[in-house]
Design a protein around this nucleic acid. Structure first.
Length: 469
RNA sequence: GCUCCGUUCGUCUAUCGGUUAGGACGCCAGGUUUUCAACCUGGAAAGACGAGUUCGAUUCUCGUACGGAGUACCA
């Protein structure tokens, strides 16, 4: 059994969008789960539209998603000579021919065909022409496609797809300037790179039939094909920049965790029974083309959030802190200072199970991140009226010398509430307002523990004396 | 126009001829609670439509509708 080799082959004409990211993920999972190789090839043969910035964005996106590839990034453009070599081989074999028709002629033909309602496939008059009749003019190299019979694509997802060869035209292999066209380049590169499994969007399904023509003309083995359905926007429409088709780095900037993104994306269009929440290791073990669905899926932010929340909850504190720092960077937020980082890390145990995204987590961590005087929000201010401040004034000295543990703090505060004839909830409001300046916070005990005795008492004293001066 | 692909709760999906059509997200109700969450319990919610094959179709076949892709000297 030959080793599995998959590849992700984006064209660098923009950011790495969510559909591309999922395609990359599927290829990565497929290879990594089978001890195979996962390669990255940038399809930059379209010089006019390819940009280095886009290549960088793709690399960055894959890095964030943790999709590591084997070997170097391959530039398709760099391999133009090899593509031309294959085209020439096809030419000498008689499997391709030079076509001198101009674009104007082709366009005229197509317009006439459209008007007549007949096939718009261009039938080059040069297909069977005698070389002695060749003019001294630029030409493209076209594949001499079969005109009868059918091409069958054995697709792992779509099943056997049959296309009549009469519906395939003689596609261009080499442009008139001698540069290769995508259809040729993919086939040559996939073959040369030893790609065994081509997992890509089903917008390439029809193309596969054409590409198979090149494989058979060259006598090359076909890869296993798996054409996966596209992802649609939340409204069911095709993804566009306006809705949903954000670059993956924007998802990072929105604060979704990478593991959750992988989990969610894997689950979009692929399933393994009823499993919804799983680790990378499980995904690698389970992933296969048999679990891939045939219909397009819509992107659902709510479910993404939920999955990310579950991953946050099981991520260890150090790793989580690190990812949060990367998030702040990508979102353009200032880095946390040492005190904030330390407090945040100490607070993660009581935050990570209740935050779906990093902005949400950071918001709940507000009490730990503020330094200096606590700013009291309006909603919390009512918990610091004269009566409440009086309570805090009485309470604070009693906390001065207790041992700063959860058990001890609970005991002291509960006793205090009881002695003063109030329910604990009555006491919690002022404490929350004093410690965090907000009405909604984590547990007061968690906050006191995370902040420590000095900072906690300091904030309590500040709140108690508020409005006194 | 032509060719190809798809269609199960609002969404992601399970089901490989026989199920009260299952799960998850979301939603609704209740519970728990120290606020907000989280969490627990319960609930509403689906086979596009029409034929055919079959003892029996969500499942197989065909048609219709709707959606998508391809049809470039783009990728």
């Amino acid at each position: 059994m030959t080793a599995v080799v998959t590849r992700f082959a984006p064209s660098p004409t923009g950011y790495l969008h969510i559909g591309g990211a999922r395609t990359a993920l599927f290829n990565w999972l497929y290879a990594r789960g089978r001890g195979g190789k996962f390669l990255l090839r940038i399809e930059d043969t379209d010089r006019a539209r390819s940009t280095p910035e886009a290549s960088a964005a793709i690399l960055k996106g894959m890095d964030w998603l943790g999709l590591d590839f084997d070997g170097e990034v391959i530039s398709q453009f760099d391999r133009a000579d090899r593509h031309a070599e294959v085209a020439n081989e096809l030419l000498s074999k008689g499997a391709a021919y030079k076509c001198f028709s101009t674009q104007d002629e082709i366009e005229t033909f197509r317009e006439a065909a459209r008007a007549a309602g007949t096939s718009t496939h261009f039938q080059s008059p040069w297909r069977g022409a005698d070389p002695s009749s060749y003019p001294d003019a630029p030409y493209v190299v076209r594949l001499k496609s079969a005109t009868t019979g059918e091409t069958v694509i054995h697709d792992e997802v779509q099943g056997d797809v049959r296309i009549k060869n009469e519906n395939l035209d003689d596609m261009v292999l080499l442009r008139s300037d001698g540069t290769p066209v995508y259809m040729l380049a993919v086939v040559v590169d996939d073959h040369d790179m030893g790609v065994t499994h081509v997992i890509r969007g089903d917008d390439h399904l029809n193309n596969a039939a054409r590409q198979i023509g090149i494989y058979s003309a060259m006598g090359w083995d076909l890869p296993v094909y798996a054409h996966i359905p596209l992802i649609h926007g939340p409204d069911g429409k095709k993804l566009s920049k306006r809705h949903g088709a954000l670059g993956v780095e924007e998802y990072q900037a929105m604060g979704y965790c990478s593991a959750g993104m992988r989990n969610y994306l894997a689950r979009l269009g692929w399933s393994h029974g009823d499993d919804e929440f799983f680790s990378d290791a499980q995904a690698k073990e389970w992933f296969g083309t048999d679990g891939i669905g045939k219909s397009p899926a819509r992107f659902d932010f709510k479910k993404l959030e939920n999955i990310c929340g579950q991953h946050n909850a099981v991520t260890d504190d150090a790793a989580l802190l690190h990812e949060i720092q990367l998030y702040r960077q990508s979102a353009g937020l200032p880095a946390l200072n040492d005190v904030q980082s330390q407090r945040l890390k100490a607070a993660l145990y009581c935050l990570k199970e209740r935050a779906k995204t990093f902005p949400e987590l950071l918001d709940k961590a507000h009490f730990a991140l503020i330094e200096g005087p606590v700013d009291v929000e309006d909603k919390a201010a009512k918990h610091l009226d004269t009566v409440s401040r009086g309570i805090l004034r009485t309470l604070t000295p009693q906390l001065q010398n207790v041992s700063w543990t959860r058990d001890e703090l609970e005991a002291v505060l509960n006793r205090f509430a009881e002695e003063n004839g109030m329910k604990f909830g009555k006491l919690a409001g002022p404490l929350r307002a004093a410690l965090a300046g907000r009405a909604a916070t984590p547990s007061v005990f968690d906050m006191m523990l995370v902040l420590g005795r000095d900072v906690s008492l300091d904030r309590l004293n500040q709140a108690a004396s508020k409005g006194d001066s």
